[in-house]
Design a protein around this nucleic acid. Structure first.
Lengths: 181, 181, 181, 181
DNA sequence: TATGAATGAGGCTTCATTCAT
DNA sequence: AATGAATGAAGCCTCATTCAT
C-alpha cells in the first residue's frame, strides 16, 4: 500500500494531469479569457465537481500550467545557450529550440514568453562574456521571444522549413537588415 | 424634415460611437475573450437592448473596431515609411510611430498586428528599392511587429523613454546584436 | 403613459410582490436558513434570473419583508394599546391583536418579535402612566411577545378559542399564577 | 480480543461524540436550517464518509442531540421544581435553572422547549398540590418557556445579572404586572 | 471501520437576447 | 429608435452521498 504509490495516488495524479492537459488545449483554442472551467472539465472524462478537488479556479490552473511548463521546458530551451561560444550559436540555439517546441503537437499552447526571465539572464551573461554588444537584455529578450513566436506561427500556418527559418532569423538578429556596404 | 433626419443621423452616429469607444476600453481592460456585451453596454449611457440596433454580436463590434483602426491608424503608421531614404529611417519611423500609438490612452487595445499587410508591402518595396538586403518580408514584418508590441509593453509597464527605445530597437534591427569586429 | 402609472410599472410592482409573497411562504415553511432563492422563485410564476432584477440576495428579501411588515402590521398591533386606561386593557389589546394576526392565513410567517421596539416603548409609557408597576420594559416586552407567539402556536395547532386564550393570557400577566390568598 | 473490542467501542463512542459536539456548535452558529453536513464534518477531525457510519442525515443528528439533551438536561431542569413548596420556589427554580443553562458555553443551541412536557407535567402537579391557581398548564408551560428563552437571550446579549433576572421573572409570573392596589 | 476522492444534482448568479412599451 | 425587464441557458461552486481502498 506504500511501495506501489497506492492506486489512489496514481489516479489522483492522472486526474490532475487530465485537467492540466484539457486546460492547455482549451486555453490554446479559445484563449484564456474566453475559456471556462466547464470547457475544461468537458474536455476531460471527469465530473464537474471533480475540478475543485484539484484546483480552485481557472487562474489556479493557469498557474499550475505555467509551473509545469517552467519545469518541463526551461531546461530544453536554455540548453544550447549556455555553451554558445558565439552570438550566432546563441541565437541559432534559441530559434531552433523555439521553433521545435512550437512545431510539436502541443505547440499552440506553449507560450514562449514564459521563458522570458531565463532568456534575459542568459543574454546578460552572454553580453558579459562579450558575445553580444552591450544592449538592454530585457528589451532584446522581449524582441527575440516575440519574433520567435510570430515567425513560428507563420511556420506552422504556412508549413515552412524550420531550419531555414532558424537560419534567417539568426541572421536577422545577428546582422540586421542593412544591405552589406 | 431634413433637419430632423439629420439630427437622428447624428444621434445614431453618436450612439454607435459610444458603443465602439466603450468596447475599446472594455476589450483593453479585460481582453476580448473575457469581455461581455453587458460589460460594453454598462460602459455606455445606453440601454441593453440598444446594443442590438447597432451590432449583432461581440465579434461584430470587434470587426468594426478593426475597420476603424485600419481607417484611422494605417495612414499614421505607414506615413514615414514611404519616404524613407535609408533602412534606418524606415525602421526609426516604424518604431517611433508604433511606440507613440501604444503609449496613447487607448494603446493597450491597439493591435499593431493589424498593420501587418501594410508593413509587409512597405518592406517589400523597400527591399526592391535596395534599402534592405533581400529577405523574407513577411517574416521580417512579423518579427518587427511582435518586437514593437513587446518593447512597447515594456515601455508602458516600466515607463521608459520612447525616443531611446526607438533608437535602440532601430539599431537592433539595423545591425543586429553582434559586437563590432 | 404617465397618468396610468404605465403598465410596466404596474407589472414591476406586481412581480416584486410575487417574490415577497412567495418568500414569506417559503420562509414560513422551511425556515429562513433552509430556504433557498430557488425555492422562492419556484413559488412564483417568474423565471430564475428575474429574482435579481428585484433583490440581490435572500437577506435582501428578508429585509424587504421586515420593512413591509413594519409598515403594515405595526399600526394594527399598537392600535389598542395607546388608549388603554388600565393594565388589563393594555394586555388584552396586545394578546387579542397578536392572536388575530397569527390566526390569519399568513399567520405562520408573521414574526411578532418584529414589533418588539414598539411594544417596549408602549410599555414604558404605560409604566410612566402608572398602569403597570415599575419593571424592566424590555424584559417584559420580550416575555409578552414570546408568550404570545407560543400560545398562538398552540391555538393554531389545537384550534382553541382565541377570546378565551386572550382572557387567560391577560389574567396570567395581570395577576400571575399565585392562588388567591 | 476483549480489550481490542472495548478499545474499538471506545473509539466509536468518541467519534460519535465528535460529531454530536460539532453539530451542536454548527447548529448554534448557523441555525439548523442553514447548517450542512459538510459544516459538521469540517468541525470534526473525521473524514466525510465517516459521518454516515454514525448518522444517516442532518435530521438524524438533531434527533440524537435532542435525546442527549433530554438525558442530560432534564434532571437538572426539573430538579428544584419537585420539592418546591410554594409557587415562588417553583418559578424561581425554573428560571434559575433555565438562565444557568443558556448562559453556558453551549447555551445558544439549547432549546428550552425540549423540556416542555416535563414542565407541563410538573405544573399540573403543582396545580394539583394547590401551589398555583387552576390554569391551563400547557399554555402556562409554553408561556414560561418562551419567556425564559427570550429573557435569557437578552441576558446573554446585554450581559445582565442572572440572579436579578430570575427574581424579576419570578415576580412577573407570580404576581403579574399590576401595580399594588 | 475510516478515509477521502468522484459524482452529479442543485443552488447562486450573470449572461445574451427578445420584446412590449 | 430607445428602453429596460423577462427569460432561461449556462457558468460557477458546494453539497450529500457513494465506494474503492
Amino acid at each position: 500500500m506504500d511501495a506501489v504509490t497506492s492506486k489512489r495516488q496514481r489516479i489522483k495524479q492522472q486526474n490532475r494531469q487530465f485537467i492540466l492537459d484539457a486546460a492547455r488545449r482549451v486555453f490554446a483554442e479559445q484563449g484564456y479569457g474566453a475559456a471556462t472551467i466547464r470547457d475544461i472539465i468537458r474536455a476531460t472524462p471527469l465530473a464537474a465537481g471533480t475540478f475543485y478537488n484539484y484546483f480552485t479556479s481557472k487562474d489556479d490552473v493557469r498557474r499550475a500550467l505555467d509551473a509545469e511548463m517552467a519545469t518541463t521546458l526551461r531546461p530544453f530551451l536554455s540548453e544550447g545557450r549556455a555553451q554558445a561560444a558565439t552570438a550566432e550559436e546563441f541565437l541559432s540555439a534559441f530559434f531552433s529550440a523555439s521553433f521545435a517546441l512550437k512545431a510539436g503537437p502541443t505547440g499552440a499552447m506553449i507560450d514562449l514568453g514564459a521563458g522570458f526571465e531565463d532568456l534575459r539572464a542568459d543574454l546578460e551573461e552572454a553580453v558579459a562574456r562579450g558575445l553580444f554588444r552591450p544592449l538592454d537584455a530585457g528589451a532584446l529578450a522581449a524582441a527575440l521571444l516575440a519574433a520567435a513566436e510570430e515567425i513560428a506561427k507563420r511556420l506552422c500556418a504556412e508549413g515552412g522549413d524550420a531550419a531555414k527559418a532558424t537560419e534567417e532569423a539568426t541572421l536577422l538578429f545577428l546582422r540586421g537588415v542593412q544591405p552589406p556596404v
